[in-house]
Write a protein that binds this DNA or RNA. Sequence first.
DNA 1: GAATGCCATGACCGCAGCCGCCATGCAGGC
DNA 2: GCCTGCATGGCGGCTGCGGTCATGGCATTC
Lengths: 235, 235
Amino acid sequence: MTAAAMQARPVSSPRPTADQVREILIVDDHPLMCDALALTLKISFGLKNVRTARSLAAAVEQIRMQGAPDAVILDLNLPDARGAEGIVTLRRQLPGVPITMISADLEGAMISAAMAAGAQGYISKSLSREALVDSLRRMWEGEHVTPECYDPARDDAGDEAKAELARRFATLTPQQMKILRLICQGKANKEISYELSIAEATVKTHITAIMSKINARRRTQAVLLANSVRLFEAG
Amino acid sequence: MTAAAMQARPVSSPRPTADQVREILIVDDHPLMCDALALTLKISFGLKNVRTARSLAAAVEQIRMQGAPDAVILDLNLPDARGAEGIVTLRRQLPGVPITMISADLEGAMISAAMAAGAQGYISKSLSREALVDSLRRMWEGEHVTPECYDPARDDAGDEAKAELARRFATLTPQQMKILRLICQGKANKEISYELSIAEATVKTHITAIMSKINARRRTQAVLLANSVRLFEAG
DNA sequence: GAATGCCATGACCGCAGCCGCCATGCAGGC
DNA sequence: GCCTGCATGGCGGCTGCGGTCATGGCATTC
């Protein structure tokens, strides 16, 4: 992510400050980490409304029922969403809300994929409490925060293109996302229709819509595009 | 690559020593790096026969004409072969000959992919001369050498499976490899047939053979398998 | 009520995948 | 020599899946 690209990113709220963050949503399947994060946030930021969800599906449902939070902290390895899928899904539902990725994996390619997908920042699970709080405050003030060991210059080329691609993936409906995930597992249309309990014809129309949205013609191209932004990690 | 996996790897010569390496082949498209390597090897190991090739195709042709060298040093980013393809191709032609990967990219996933594909070791382009010579000597004595910053334990699971997969890819004929590369670019059979100037029916036959060899049913699965061992990098 | 977005279905057509078959080149056995 | 066996590359036909189109139901929103 180049500095220019960061500046160019459109944000709905013109000049956010950390004070405006009053309600936060933590999405993590590890209860311990969930509690630890919630506690830290309550103490350090004086937040009362800390909501939690154990899966991506639960988070989506909760946002639909209880409304949008002011910020999200999202685990990278959820049971139902590995890789950039979580960011993409939540950004579709919460445009303008800062999403912070948290993970133990500090691989450069994964970080740049997350940032290109529209994350506000990426922090390590093994960060000290002070560093964690500081990173989150800076993110909520609009800054893009990445780990020190991450050098964005390494893959400068094609970065804006990946961000554009991530934006396209963000337009996929939930059902389309499910189907794309199965496609990226090498499943045939008939298998997909069976797993989702719909007709094969329906699968095909969804696929046509997906192809159109991400600008692919063959399904192999769709797989390559999804892999290039690390939409689904191995699993 | 676990220690157990290293021990288990079959080597044709029972106990190789660095002294047995008399003729070496350097495959690198960068002339400067090529010369520097050749000079270093001549001085440090007293080697007279240092052959060079500027592309994978040239290397394959040269081996066919001039016979097998005792060791190979292979650049990761050749004009006609990025990623693990170079290792796989050369291992098919030179079973038992130690192949050393050399690259500026020290990303963990790339290193483990190279090792799983059957490389004897992986060294950085920015290594000092002493360290380079030492690494090569150890490799030629049968040791598997990886950079210090690389932690093989990070992706221990599925590693043996990847090595098995790489062995399967090594059975592909040159024509089949060409076709697989085009498949992994999202090309349709008709396009492939045009690019290779053969009938579409022929492309299909080759694809059937490829599928059978790598144990895939749908072409999307073939793409995923190739990507999982990083057979072809983006480009 | 009209408009929009999401999901679902069946019919049509071209390509993907599997089959059988043929040509060439190269090894080993008679 | 010859023949056989095997690997590789090439071809066309058949079946079924992949991809497009036109259509309709069902929510939400204006």
